[in-house]
Every structure is written in C-alpha cells, then in structure tokens.
Design a protein around this nucleic acid. Structure first.
Lengths: 252, 252
DNA sequence: ATCAAAATGAGCATAGTCAATCATTTCCAA
DNA sequence: TTGGAAATGATTGACTATGCTCATTTTGAT
C-alpha cells in the first residue's frame, strides 16, 4: 500500500469512528507506530485531522465535542467516570435502552465501537451514535422537549410499550431513599415509567448531587431498580438503604 | 506495442485496480521501470492519474474520499438559496413535515424564529431545532440510517400515517421527467411515500444535480408534487414537463 | 503531589524509489 | 540507404519511506 493510500484510508477510518489510536492504526495497516505517527503529523499539517496524545480525532468531531452546553454540565468528571463504569456492564450484541440526560450521553460516547442495538429517546444520543458502524440505533420519536432534547409523550410511550430490552440505563433528577425516583416534568415521568417496564434490568446512573432530592412527579420506588452507579460522594446511609433492598451498588 | 497504447492500457489497469505499482506495470507491459515512470509522469501531467511514491492511483479513487462533511457542502450555495426561498412559503402556526437530507436541513436553519409545529424524521433537523423557542418539534422515531441520519422503518411510517400536515418539504436523490421521484434505499422510499400521503401540499426541494437521475426505488410520480424549488441550472425541458403537469416551478 | 507507564519526536540506518543523463534502438521520411 | 527524431533501457547519485532506539514529555492512578 502506498503512503498516499494509507493516508486516505486513515481519513476514512476517522470518518467512520471519529477517533483512532496509534496502535489501532498501526495494526490495521500493518506498519510501525512510528510510521503512523508520521502519517498523523502530516495529515494534521494539512488540517485533515486533529492530533491527540495517543492517536487522532476527526476534525468535525472535535468541533462537535465541547459544546457550550456540555461545558456547563455540572459534575462532568463524575458523570464521565460513572459512564465509563456503566459501559463495562454492557456486553456485545445486547439490546440497550438509553434514557436522555447528560450522564447517559456520556455513556453513549463510550459505545461507538461496540456491536449493540440501542434504543433512545434522547436527541443528543442519536446525534452521537448515528454514524457508529456496528450499532443498530432506534429512536422512540415523540415530542421533543426543548433544552433537554428528550422525546416524550404518547408516541414515545407507545414505542417503548412495544419493545423489550436487556438493560435500561436511566438518568433521574431526584433520587431519595424513601420517596424513590422523581422528576419535575410529568411527561418525562411517564416516559421513564414505561422505560422501566420495558427493561429486564434497570441500571440507574446518578451523581451524588441527585441523591436526597425529591422533585414533583414520582417515577418509581427504589425497589424497581436493579443496580445503581454513583460517585463516592454519595451519602453512605442512602447506599445502605439501597443494599438493604437488594440493589447492586457501585461507587466510582 | 506503441507508447500511446501502453498509456491507454495503464489507465484501464488503474480503472480496474484503482492502484498500480511501478514494478507491477513494468512486468505487465514488459518494459523497463524507467519507461513506466516516464509514462506515469506524462499521464499525471495530463491529469489522467495521481502519482504516488512507488506507483500511481486512479483519480476517481482519490476523489472517492469526499467526506460526509464535504458531501454536505456539494452545491451548498444552491441549497442555501433553495432553502431560503422555501422558507418564504411557510406561514406562522403551520404544521410542517421536514424530510431528511442536506437541503431540508438548510431549510430548518431558516426556521428558528418562527412559530411552527415541525415533524421530522431527520436527526440533524432535531438537533438543529431542539432549542428553538417557538417550535413544537416532533420526531417520527424509527430506525436511524447511518451517515444519512434519517429515521425510517415501520415505526416511523406508523407515526406518519397517524398525522396530517399542511406542507411537506421533500428531498430526493433522483428526479426525472418520465420516471418521477426515486431514491436508492427501499426503506427511505417507503418512508417518503408515507410522507407524501400525509401532506396537503408537497414541495420538492432539489438542486439541478438531482434532475435527470433515476435511482433504484421509485417513490412517486411527478404529478404527486405540488411545487418544485430548484436552481437555475435545472434543464429547461424538465421544468416545462413540470409546468405541463400543473406543478408550480420556482428556480432560484 | 508523586510516580510509573505510555506516548512522543528526534536521530539514524536501510531498503526502495526517483529523476537525470546518456547510449542504444526503432521508426519514418527523404 | 541514411539522417534525425522519438522511444527505450541502463546507470547513478539523490531522495523518500520506514523501522528502530532513546531521551523527554504526557498521562493517569494513587
């Protein structure tokens, strides 16, 4: 393969996966890592990609990544860690239901290279995963809630009622030992209820800031959750309540 | 074999294999590598191929690279003008169905400040308009087609069947006077059919590059269209055909 | 904050490739 | 035939691509 060809292919690869590591490319094209590094340097010179430590990313992906909104996201690093841990519980070929929200979006970012069927009511997740090669991506449809980008309402619920998934990764505004799960919007509350019914296993992703909060509409009681992934700042008493209910608790 | 003949054969060879090395060609045509290099230099001069270190690659192959982003920018200015004109036909409070595609995405960008109900099967349009203040945004849901970001399949069709909209803005891969409207993907074709049925008024947005093209699956005949907005490079004969059918034709 | 592992880029040696040059061969018209 | 232009092949010094080593930087985990 000629150098030029390899350069083209590296760009296609990046277009597909948005990112590529040096060892990954080295193996793919059967050349040394040095060569790949040289390739990446040259392509960066030509502004065809953006070099990162360990690899490179696609240019539009870079532009897309740090949106204003995302920068404003609170507790981003906790959410990232929670998402990373959550991704370790996903096996190839599974069918996953992804709720809307910033934490589940972080989870979506981890899933690009897996072979999965993903159902979601989040516009951001759709955008994030629409070009992932091995993912069969399904959208619930419905009314789009501004700002949040969640699809809700009767159409969305109707979609969910017709499916069954292996695992649901659920976000939530309020999580409380006594009051269970709650959210401020009635349509979202209803939607989350349906999602819980559609899943064999319900995994709740929430950073510590959500714990102890009670918001307007109750979605479910704690006992309907199978696993909860949160950060180490979560109050111990709450975590004990969860374990008492037989919920798997993971803190990261 | 004459020099000219060899040149022709080198080009055929490239057409077949997209690439060729100097030793490979040298052996194939039983001439020295020097000669091949001379041949390749001349052919590059005439822009018949692209020289690389060690050989040459077919030009089309090099051009094969146009990234998703570049595709979006093909005829961008035409698309923008078409979109702008299309937006002038939209009145406040109307219910609009927006097909997926780059031209309809340009249209979506024009609609931020209007008070509308918009239904779409395009992930890009959802992202574009999710934060628009006065827009009630509805998503069809369904299976997401990679690259294109169109939601299709039975669920998407089911959604469309249950609604009626004032106007549909439709994109299309192929538009031909005789053959009507066509698209390469069967699911998209089906989806577009349903959308046409759901609309009181069907407005086709297409730049001149789509006209005269026929692709695999027929979506509808021209007569099902109420209005077509295209650019001034559209062939006159086609525009006359449209007017004969009573279609409003606008060229920008 | 600190440390070990991973990644990097510079330098260098090697193999393969290149363009320039020149001698030889082929072709064609006078 | 013969002269000259064009095409070809061989040679060679320069250039390019690659892989390897090693000192330095970056990263991530504690």
């Amino acid at each position: 393969m000629f150098t030029e060809e390899r350069h083209q292919q590296i760009l296609s690869y990046l277009n597909k996966y948005h990112r590529a590591s040096v060892p990954e490319l080295s193996q793919t094209f059967q050349v040394s890592e040095s060569t790949i590094r040289r390739d990446l340097s040259e392509l960066e010179q030509k502004e065809k990609l953006r070099r990162t430590h360990g690899g490179a990313v696609c240019l539009d992906f870079v532009r897309m990544e740090p949106t204003v909104k995302e920068k404003q996201t609170t507790n981003l690093s906790e959410k990232e860690r929670i998402a990373k841990t959550a991704s370790e519980w996903i096996k190839e070929k599974e069918t996953i239901l992804l709720d809307s929200g910033t934490t589940t979006l972080q989870l979506a970012k981890q899933l690009h290279s897996l072979n999965l069927t993903i159902v979601t009511n989040s516009v951001s997740v759709l955008t994030e995963l629409q070009d992932a090669q091995n993912i069969e991506l399904l959208s619930t449809g419905g009314t789009v809630r501004p700002q949040i980008g969640a699809m809700v309402g009767p159409y969305a619920e109707g979609f969910i009622r017709r499916i069954k998934v292996d695992k649901l990764f659920l976000g939530m505004n309020g999580v409380d030992g006594r009051n269970g799960l709650s959210t401020p919007n009635v349509l979202e509350a209803q939607m989350k209820k349906e999602m819980i019914s559609a899943a064999n296993k319900v995994i709740l992703l929430c950073d510590h800031s959500k714990i102890g909060k009670i918001t307007l509409h109750q979605v479910a009681s704690l006992s309907e959750i199978d696993m909860i992934i949160t950060d180490k700042s979560a109050p111990l008493s709450f975590l004990e309540d969860c374990e008492q209910l037989g919920i798997d608790v993971i803190t990261v």
